[in-house]
């Protein structure tokens, strides 16, 4: 199982993928808001979304798992 984690502390602003969606390397999967900036979180590997861990509005620390891929 592959995990996509938050690159920094912030607030989950938008989740761009749902369970079952295919994800390519480099695709933006989540948009984080940190220090008044929108930060796209890109997939670091490819696969199919098996679980969306984060919810919009969640406050996350660095390295928090946001999405799991098959």
């Amino acid at each position: 199982m592959k995990k996509i984690v938050s690159p920094m502390a912030g607030t989950v602003w938008k989740i761009l993928k749902s369970v079952g969606d295919p994800v390519e390397y480099g695709d933006a999967v989540v948009i984080l808001e940190s220090m008044k900036m929108e930060i796209p979180v890109d997939a670091t590997s490819q696969g199919v979304v098996t679980k969306v861990v984060a919810q919009e509005g969640d406050v996350v620390d660095q390295d928090t798992v946001l999405i799991e891929l098959s």
Binding site: P7, M35, I39
Partner: peptide
């Protein structure tokens, strides 16, 4: 600023 110029000026809280 709490940001990283060598990583596209990504914010760096902590």
């Amino acid at each position: 600023y709490a940001e990283n110029p060598s990583r596209k000026f990504f914010p760096s809280p902590g």
